[in-house]
């Protein structure tokens, strides 16, 4: 029946998915601004809660910034597949003649660019506000670029597993936070090492390895999880 419709190449299928999702994200700037605003608000809360002492703040800054980045990434990933699930386009993707893992990766990539990468790009600003020494700012950016790849991918697994469950958000944080622990440890250690003039490369390399490993394996988990959710 569909013999006369030529199949797209995998790359084309991926990039169409990417563009579709990216346009949807660009169409709602509020959704993109929300995690940044959340980041900003929480950064404001720390001096209020911990006291304005600059030395103390700057000592804690690497950990604080990374924890907030993790939380805001968690917040946005929980809704990653929600609208696709509700309007039925997920089922269309699942029966499409392309590997589901490739198609959803288009979506995840767009999501990462609009949230994770954006977060990494503005993070040095928040670093300055918390008194993170200049030596740490670059590493904070690099570690968050690599780290948000992992966070977004792992968050996508959580979103795929909980998309068919009502009130899946809380459950998702239980599923996802333990898996994010290594990312957090490598990321904060990289930034702290850079601040004390140590060797952040080791930790950035580990983080990069984790990101590449997740890029290779996580798409399979996401598509398996989505198929399970469609059965529920």
């Amino acid at each position: 029946m569909s013999a006369d419709i030529p199949l797209l190449s995998l790359r084309e299928a991926f990039s169409r998915q990417f563009r579709r999702h990216f346009k949807a994200l660009m169409g709602s700037p509020a959704d993109m601004a929300n995690p940044l605003l959340f980041f900003f608000m929480v950064v404001t809360l720390f001096p209020l809660g911990l006291g304005p002492d600059p030395e103390r703040l700057s000592a804690m800054a690497p950990g604080l910034l990374w924890v907030v980045a993790l939380l805001s990434s968690l917040m946005v990933s929980s809704k990653l597949f929600g609208s696709d699930y509700e309007d039925g386009s997920l089922e269309q993707l699942a029966i499409a003649p392309y590997p589901l893992s490739i198609l959803v990766m288009g979506e995840v990539a767009a999501h990462w660019l609009a949230t994770g990468f954006l977060l990494a790009a503005v993070s040095p600003l928040f670093g300055i506000m918390l008194g993170l020494p200049a030596a740490g700012l670059g590493v904070l950016f690099y570690s968050l670029v690599l780290g948000t790849i992992c966070l977004t991918l792992i968050g996508a697994i959580g979103s795929a597993l909980t998309v068919s469950i009502r009130r899946g958000g809380l459950l998702m944080s239980l599923l996802i936070i333990p898996l994010n622990v290594p990312v957090l440890i490598f990321g904060t250690t990289a930034v702290s090492e850079a601040v004390i003039g140590g060797n952040p490369q080791t930790w950035l390399t580990l983080l990069g390895g984790l990101a590449m490993g997740s890029l290779a394996l996580v798409p399979l988990a996401i598509s398996a999880a989505l198929r399970v959710s469609l059965d529920n």
Binding site: I154, L161, T162, S164, L175, V228, S229, D231
Partner: peptide, 29 residues
């Protein structure tokens, strides 16, 4: 997480497979 995920699914066959995916991902840890 595995226990809670199993409880949250209505279809228990799907629940078992969801938990299988999650526990395999967790093995990384």
């Amino acid at each position: 997480g595995v226990v809670a995920l199993f409880e949250a699914y209505e279809n228990k066959t799907a629940a078992a497979r969801a938990c299988a995916v999650l526990s395999l991902v967790g093995t990384v840890n």
